[in-house]
Write a protein that binds this DNA or RNA. Structure first.
Lengths: 139, 139
DNA sequence: TCTTTGCACTTGCAAATTGCAAGCAAAATT
DNA sequence: AATTTTGCTTGCAATTTGCAAGTGCAAAGA
């Protein structure tokens, strides 16, 4: 475990030290919106993350308490990753990225519904989604 | 100018292709909240970006229409960088990162006031700040 | 029981990116 | 005219990434 070296005390900079790369937020996206929870799940995502990078990011996110690693209830061969409260609290950040992207990129059909819901009533969307995510922590 | 290679059609992934690194959002932060506008200004930020990385990031952000490069009204030696509308629209993303960070990091005194204002009334903060930023585009 | 498959990584290595120091040309200052 | 400022570019070493292959363990199948 390496010591986390901050570049500055700026909250944005500190945040980017945690998730400021091309992959971490995609893992969080998969956990938050698409029900993924295992190493194999993340590997299947269409962006095609390399296996060593995935292992490394999962470790960093775990060290920073964004996710936690648990035994998989269905199989000893698998691990189950899930968002912590701190990770769930990133929902507004991810949501705003979705809403920004919606203005400037074309949105694939399978994601459209989710974004439209967020667009229609942002607060309601975030409250509902956050409640669902926190419910998972009780299990 | 290199062609932008998307990893997928996912809006989060496309967004990270644009600003998903340790430096781009810090440049945007400097433009958005701290009135910085020149190469030298960004270089002075406490995180200490390398000169070649800064030049490279400014170019990428310009190519992606997040910022634009103009003649500096006061000096021909300087360039003036400013956020486009597309860049200004990232305000909610930056604001939510601030609010997330506020929950999990200790906040330096000089930034505290800004974050407290956002925390007290997020919508009002964003409306006011966005209005100020858009006013700069008219000049 | 033995073999095969699935899962979660780790390792080795080449390629790309980053960080640091130095250099450079045009403009501004002295 | 000489020096400093500004916005870069260049060279190179160090770090990080991406790809392919390999490893160890658990569960399933023959």
């Amino acid at each position: 475990m390496e010591t986390v070296k901050k570049r500055s005390e700026c909250p944005i900079s500190c945040s980017l030290d945690v998730f400021g790369d091309k992959w971490s937020l995609l893992i969080i996206r998969d956990l938050m919106f698409w029900g993924k929870s295992t190493y194999g799940d993340f590997l299947k995502s269409e962006e095609g993350i390399a296996t060593n990078i995935l292992a490394s990011r999962l470790q960093t996110l775990e060290e920073n308490k964004i996710i936690e690693k648990l035994e998989h209830p269905g199989s000893k061969a698998k691990n189950l990753y899930r968002l912590t409260e701190k990770g769930i609290d990133l929902l507004p950040v991810l949501t705003e990225i979705y809403l920004w992207a919606e203005k400037f990129f074309s949105i694939p059909a399978d994601i459209k519904a989710t974004i439209d819901e967020a667009k229609k009533d942002k607060e309601a969307f975030m409250q509902t989604t956050m409640k669902d995510l926190k419910k998972q922590l009780e299990e």
